[in-house]
Design a protein around this nucleic acid. Sequence first.
DNA 1: TCAAAAGTGTTTTTTATACACCCATGC
DNA 2: GCATGGGTGTATAAAAAACACTTTTGA
Lengths: 228, 228
Amino acid sequence: MFDKSYQEQAKQLVAIDCSIFGYENGALKILLFCRNIEPCKGELSLIGGWVNIDEPVEGAAARVLKKITGLDHIAMDLVGVFSNPDRDPGARVITVAFNALIDIVAHKKSISGTFGANWFDVSQVPPLIFDHDIIFNKSLEKLRKKASHHLVGLDLLPPEFTIAQLRQLYNSIFQREFDPGNFRKKILSLNVLKRLDKKDSSDSKKGSYFYAPVNKDKLVGLGSIVKT
Amino acid sequence: MFDKSYQEQAKQLVAIDCSIFGYENGALKILLFCRNIEPCKGELSLIGGWVNIDEPVEGAAARVLKKITGLDHIAMDLVGVFSNPDRDPGARVITVAFNALIDIVAHKKSISGTFGANWFDVSQVPPLIFDHDIIFNKSLEKLRKKASHHLVGLDLLPPEFTIAQLRQLYNSIFQREFDPGNFRKKILSLNVLKRLDKKDSSDSKKGSYFYAPVNKDKLVGLGSIVKT
DNA sequence: TCAAAAGTGTTTTTTATACACCCATGC
DNA sequence: GCATGGGTGTATAAAAAACACTTTTGA
């Protein structure tokens, strides 16, 4: 039901922006970049990139993430489309925003510093360029929504982790304290984690067992994990 | 963190598509259109339109909806971005998909027939052009997700409705039978509807009270209405 | 009078929450 | 031994689900 033919229609610039989340030292972090072109050169932003005409927007996001992190198959979710005509003072640019969740510990060395990238605690994010503040806020909201019915820990934590580490991650995502006993029961009742024979002794004298997902595909549709 | 300057980047066509949902005679319906331009002229599709360079994507969607339905302020939600390079055989077109919920009864006359538009029961949707089948499926999924924590009835039903009508709407959205007693209790416990003094006698001898929202703004964040 | 849907009440089950308490161990 | 976080159990509260029953009234 198009009211103008394809030829008559104006084309426009399309970009993607990614909120790259990581988790380290009990805090949820986001990767921010020092912009190296005008306008707003030198200011902080989410990572972005153009969408080429021969790739879907998810492809563009994956390409940018690969370049930044060296990783394929990063967990990604659509956050929204930001398209106010004047959102980018350089030109009319429609941007599609994604969340990306990565395991900082395993990949920190290759990321931080390069591309002018630095991790920031999500509770202490400085002002960003354009509408990136708005995008970031919506990203965080989406992350919380996702975490409430999906074990996001498995993307943000190393492949083997303790229940306490997962709980602390949830504490930092939702900015509240989950009861250790109840959280453990809830998570284990989902039947998606198996206990390993290894223990982690860095956080307690007794040591706590490592867990790993039984099956990465079984981590969706878990019902509510936490109330929102 | 753009790797090419604005000038070097290829521009592209951006469109919106809307899944317009309505509810009538106990069935959830979607408005489909007979496409009047090539390619795929004469086949069925969702309603779409180009995004102009001086408007956000939501603006384009609202503009198209206004043209089709005559209505402003239609409830809209982002469904997703569909951008496979070959999704539209006519050209590379990135489309942003939205859900729109409208009250069929009040506006049917002005819609059906015009623009080659017709309402289809969501359980009997014929094949659509391009990737519109995929878009439609995702739209339905999003509608269910929204309905599980938001009283979507208030957009799909007339301004005054009975609890039974709302329940039947939920039955048709989720394709299951909600218990009349429990559904009533759940809805009324949300404290967002007020009972009117009028009764509707079309569905029962006894007649049932009409209800209306106390405040349109209070209909978000209601916690879970139905389990998903 | 009776069928049919509206509306209310009760019981049972499930789930969430609060919190007491034992366990293992490094200091 | 004892402080510390891991891990388990239990008691309570809240929510969801199942379902019995009462009300109203047109046919």
